[in-house]
Design a protein around this nucleic acid. Structure first.
Lengths: 217, 217, 217, 217
DNA sequence: TATGAATGAGACTTCATTCAT
DNA sequence: TATGAATGAAGTCTCATTCAT
């Protein structure tokens, strides 16, 4: 990936090359199955150099998680214009679109975050949990904002909002995988599907309409 | 789990003990990190016996996936009474509740299916994909049934339904994890949250109301 | 090979079935690669029964070697009529033909003796060495007899005779393999080839004609 | 063998040390019975290094076979002066003497080639078969040359020559083992024994004298 | 800065062998 | 007589990690 196996390069550059290789390898093979040998070779460096710069496999993986998480959050943040006048649904839509776009463009990074990091025990799961919580909080804020914009009389209970945000984020994660492997479904289509699915229900909810096991559909 | 480290037992029993231990170990450590030594010890058996009965780590993992997948699908199926007169939303609610109940009661089995199997390459991912497709198809059928019950004029496009089903299942998967680690949120609460979130929006959709980036929320 | 997997059979019969299976397996796989599992299965018996009758893998292998060695020696012996009037060359020819016939008809037994037993360390190599020495001695006797019949003046030195017998036996062993895998070469042809090769030279030798590095061909 | 258990050495050197140890171990124990542990220890190296350089037990064994086969063929080739004027019998004698010398000096290498490689299944047997065929072809050429030098009227049939070459090579192989374990029998003596045994008979054969079961010796 | 050489520890797997019935 | 159940020991191979230059 453009990582010319050259001689001396500044440390920062080499480090990025290594992490590129690592993200790719971890994303495709998984944390345990990826070998430092393979990463070093893909990076065009000798193994001791990887250790010199990144200390251990664990630290390398953590560094990858952090880098990819920050990139994803930054992409979503950048898409949601902080303009005061923009309504909450537009903001949510923009964020979702950015999310789907970014995950589609960085499949290995997304695999590291969504698949690998969460499957391999505490040190790593905690790392992604931070990012996910950040996003959930962000979505929660949008839902609250929407509630205020609607001037709904019933305040949504805090727990409800939390659950809704969880569901929305979970649905988005699921759709990201689906969109990437379904031809004809791009970021825009996935975002629209999710808005249709969620936003209308959210609106009803805010107007006090609730589904209950007893009532009619 | 009752696996008394006893003496001679019939093969079928020992096999289940081994698979119990394997599901637990795979679910907590992951496929690669779980060692056959640990599984054998947890099962109260020597390693060769595990190989004699289950042949290899790969086959053992596959057997676990299959057993847990069948158990989960069976639980959901059993909850959805096939009675003709039951409306689609009741069916969906019952299925979701059963799903959340089962995953809460079998966290290791759920971890194997949701987290581990999909993370570790083709032989295993394919195995869960079958089950997941089955569930998605099941949900798709419910959505279609609901559309018919509503006598909606606009038929929902096929792709739309597919996307909605994906989103619903994804949201359910995400909520399963959330419900398990959030005190006060049981299967019923999670199912209700999801119904509120999804079903109302679905109703609007069937009535032709759509969200679009341009229009108002 | 006709070993019907039946119930109770007299011990002697079962033992032969096991040894048949063992000879076949050892002959084809080698001593180490052959597993007691495979042998037991091929014999149509459970493994403990093999141990009950034959004690250990080592003893089983030794028993196979002994049985096959005796069969081979008996076949050769039977072919060489002990009649006093028969000339030595006829006797040698008959013995060789019987040797080639027997090895062709019992390829696995021959493999056990020639290939496997000699390659796997002392306990076994010694076992075949006994048989081979017996045959070499037998051939040596024939050569001596031939010398007496020729009334040659020069007695052949003892070492010479030993070497000649070794060479003859070695050549026969080599030709056995060659004959078995070369179409059109049967026991008779192999025996004739060897007699042509060896006997004439022997005759010359007894008449005092020797080849030496210095002399002309 | 001079393999000082020293520190860092260039790869090529270490590889030879490992192969020396491997030839010795394989030759004495056999392919299956030899353990990589033992080989590594004898080479004065850790096991992973053996795998790093030679990849697998199978490849290591194959490499040994190839190295020893080339050494043996080279030794024989070097001994047979390609001078045009040298008669065929001198060439054969020189080749045999070199063969016996080399096998006596490299008993483990010879064991690998003659005993072990041919005993352990296809990948290896094929490897030695190539070398053996080369030698048989070489001997066949010498016999043909001898026939031409003799101006014999009867051409020897092709099959006859093939059989004779097989017998000669087989006799040589057998004598190699005998010479190594019989005091007083060196390479020269073994070569002379074989020439006496074979060459005279060959000469008779070319003059049309054949042994037949019916005729007198 | 950068690397060829080297290893301790541990993984999966197989096998000869025995016990209890 | 015959076997299903079970294991201790050992073997091949891989990997993260370090040393010496």
């Amino acid at each position: 990936m453009g990582a010319v196996k050259g001689k001396r390069m500044p440390r920062a550059v080499r480090e990025q090359q290594m992490m590129d290789a690592a993200v790719r390898t971890f994303g495709q093979r998984g944390y345990r199955a990826a070998s430092m040998d393979e990463i070093a070779e893909l990076a065009g460096v000798s193994k001791p150099l990887v250790y010199l710069y990144l200390n251990s496999k664990e630290e390398l993986f953590t560094a990858c998680i952090r880098r990819e998480a920050q990139a994803l959050v930054a992409a979503v943040r950048a898409a949601v214009e902080p303009g005061a006048g923009v309504p909450a649904d537009r903001k949510l839509w923009a964020g979702l679109a950015a999310f789907f776009t970014h995950t589609a463009e960085h499949p290995d990074g997304w695999a590291v975050l969504h698949r690998q990091a969460r499957t391999h025990g505490e040190p790593f799961a905690a790392e992604v949990a931070v990012m996910r919580d950040e996003i959930v909080a962000f979505v929660t804020g949008l839902i609250d904002a929407a509630a205020r914009e609607t001037h709904s009389e019933d305040e949504l209970a805090e727990t409800d909002v939390a659950g809704l945000a969880q569901a929305l984020v979970g649905a988005a994660e699921s759709l990201a995988g689906w969109a990437n492997e379904t031809p004809g479904i791009g970021a825009k289509e996935a975002a629209a599907t999710l808005m249709n699915f969620a936003w209308q229900g959210l609106g009803d909810l805010m107007r006090g309409e609730r589904w209950s096991p007893g009532g009619g559909g």
